[in-house]
């Protein structure tokens, strides 16, 4: 269960959302740039604190201003895939994926086997000891995803995970991510401005505008024409 009910004053508007998503579903936050979508991810991860409200993921309360509870970032157990991946540039593919496990003081042998187990199916074994500066965009995306999943997070946060990829790779990566999410059986929040991402991956979709949810529901509900200009624009683009 994802339960996000927060308010936070931002520079241009007040972020004010109340979102609930059932167990192990993928929530997609959809909208134009600057709508406050990434702020929600940062609030869940603990990189920002809300002015008021609460965030609960499963049985864990990450933050609750009424109860004056706030779990520090490093103890929340979130897996965050940043927009440009934020792979540590001074580390190899292996070191990047292993980083979270090292921070949990997992024994070296266990880390090695876990990293190989994760990287094998995604074809990263041959670039395992390459510095991340020398791998392709698609491989970077996979490393970022595995780095986040390696720590067995309570929730996976994905910020525009396909925006740095070319259109062909995007389609392939959407399918790959869908399979991974189904396999991982953890709730996830995906931020995107691309309706195709929302259709491919979202169980629940929230369309955001200036810090508020203006439309929400499953894919079918969202896709009805005439509900919001953002969705209609997508249809007109499809026709042309």
């Amino acid at each position: 269960m994802i339960d996000i009910c927060v308010k936070k004053a931002l520079r241009d508007f007040v972020l004010d959302v109340d979102i609930r998503v059932p167990e192990n579903e993928t929530l997609v936050l959809l909208g134009e740039n600057g709508a406050g979508k990434s702020t929600i991810l940062n609030l869940v991860a603990g990189l920002m604190t809300p002015d008021s409200g609460h965030i609960r993921i499963g049985t864990a309360t990450f933050v609750d201003t009424a109860a004056r509870t706030c779990i520090p970032v490093e103890l929340r157990g979130t897996g965050y895939v940043f927009q440009d991946y934020a792979l540590f540039p001074h580390m190899t593919v292996y070191e990047n994926i292993a980083y979270g496990l090292r921070m949990q003081d997992v024994p070296r042998e266990t880390i090695a086997s876990r990293v190989r187990e994760l990287a094998g199916p995604l074809g990263l074994l041959e670039v395992m000891y390459e510095n991340v500066k020398y791998i392709s965009g698609g491989q970077c995306q996979r490393v970022a995803l595995l780095r986040a999943l390696a720590v067995q997070p309570k929730i996976l946060l994905l910020d525009e995970p396909f925006s740095a990829l070319d259109v062909r790779t995007q389609g392939q990566m959407r399918q790959e991510l869908k399979a991974i999410l189904e396999c991982a059986k953890i709730p996830s929040i995906l931020v995107t401005h691309d309706l195709r991402d929302a259709i491919a991956l979202g169980d629940q979709i929230c369309l955001m505008e200036k810090g508020e949810v203006v439309l929400s529901g499953d894919v079918e509900t969202i896709l009805q024409e005439g509900k919001h200009p953002f969705i209609d624009r997508f249809y007109s683009r499809e026709v042309t």
Partner: peptide, 25 residues
Amino acid sequence: RVYEHAARTLGAGPLRTFFSITVPL
């Protein structure tokens, strides 16, 4: 800062983030 943020979400406290990410970079 995004590298430091990534390290924090992966379970590194402020000091470990500093010594394993910020200082090497």
